[in-house]
């Protein structure tokens, strides 16, 4: 084994890439949960985003259009969840599970003709000046555009939740939907919008896997990334900034185990491959300090 074979600059650069799908899916779910809805279907929306993004990108030749398609696909699936849980008052846990099972099936069906095809190239940006800084440049400023977009979405979400009136309303709906309803806010409408945003973000995260990280379409390729995103939201205590921390931590473990596999460590590959999931469990155990939104997962019915 030769640990010096791991290039630290390359390590941190790929850490950013590994964390990006989790950041995207996580920030979407964070907004959804702050609005008081527990959507366990992140995995399903991600995988649908992955396949929609890939299909659109292959057929149009544009990765950007692919991402757009992925966001639309994810949002549509999320709205299906919204109609069921918000209008038909179904159990959110069960519906979220259904969404995941449905999304896995639908994506496998849609992606049949696309296995083994190469998608369009999504080039990295070499930001002038900043990208030329030694060490920091290759890590931070020579990434593909989605890395920056994901960070911008986190920044925007943080500002939206804490600095705008609409964000305040969204949080009020999540903390106490009955009180928010009494004040005249449209609980269901707010939640549907939050869900659509969450679905779109999850779709982007999935498409990032199929268009940038892998980049290919294979069945079940998200491999639990959506569930890890859900765990990171809990880890983050429902705060956007800490979400970044959690995602980078997870990205670090993922890249480290891949590097160790490549370096030929004496640990069997299977045990290294488990490590991101085990790390997620450990993180969940030691960091469940945050307080969940008051109305999280509860069914809202205006008659009460």
């Amino acid at each position: 084994m030769d640990l010096s074979a791991i290039n630290p600059i390359l390590f941190f650069a790929s850490l950013m890439v590994a964390a990006t799908p989790i950041i995207l899916a996580g920030i979407g779910e964070l907004v959804v949960e702050r609005a008081g809805v527990l959507n366990l279907g992140v995995e399903g929306m991600m995988i649908l985003g992955a396949v929609c993004g890939f299909i659109v990108a292959v057929n149009t030749g544009s990765a950007w259009l692919g991402f757009l398609g992925a966001a639309l696909g994810g949002a549509l699936l999320a709205l299906l969840f919204g109609v069921l849980t918000q209008c038909l008052l179904s159990n959110q846990v069960a519906t979220g599970l259904a969404l995941t099972l449905f999304g896995l099936g639908l994506s496998a069906l849609m992606g049949q003709g696309y296995i083994g095809i190469k998608g369009p190239v999504f080039a990295d940006w070499h930001i002038p000046i900043l990208g030329d800084i030694p060490v920091l440049g290759p890590i931070m400023f020579q990434q593909d555009p989605m890395v920056y977009i994901a960070l911008l979405i986190v920044l925007g979400t943080g500002l939206f939740l804490n600095r705008t009136r609409a964000g305040l309303i969204l949080r009020a709906v999540g903390e106490n939907h009955d009180a928010a309803h009494q004040l005249g806010y449209k609980v269901i409408r707010v939640r549907l919008m939050a869900l659509a945003f969450g679905g779109a973000c999850a779709g982007l995260g999935g498409a990032y896997l199929s268009l940038v990280r892998v980049p290919q379409w294979t069945e079940g390729m998200t491999a639990g990334a959506g569930w890890i995103a859900l765990a990171i939201v809990v880890f983050a205590g429902w705060k956007p900034w800490r979400l970044l921390l959690g995602a980078y931590l997870f990205g670090g473990v993922t890249v480290l185990q891949l590097n160790l596999q490549a370096a030929g460590v004496a640990i069997p590959v299977e045990y290294l491959s488990m490590s991101p999931y085990l790390a997620t469990i450990v993180v969940l155990v030691i960091m469940s300090a945050g307080r969940a939104p008051g109305s999280l997962g509860r069914i809202f019915h205006a008659s009460h």
Partner: peptide, 26 residues
């Protein structure tokens, strides 16, 4: 028929069940 179609059918079944279940309680 692709195998995924059956998986989809099973997922759909749970969806419809949850959707029409509103009739039980409301």
């Amino acid at each position: 028929l692709p195998g995924a179609a059956i998986q989809l059918l099973q997922g759909m079944l749970l969806f419809f069940l949850l959707a029409v279940d509103v009739l039980t309680n409301y």
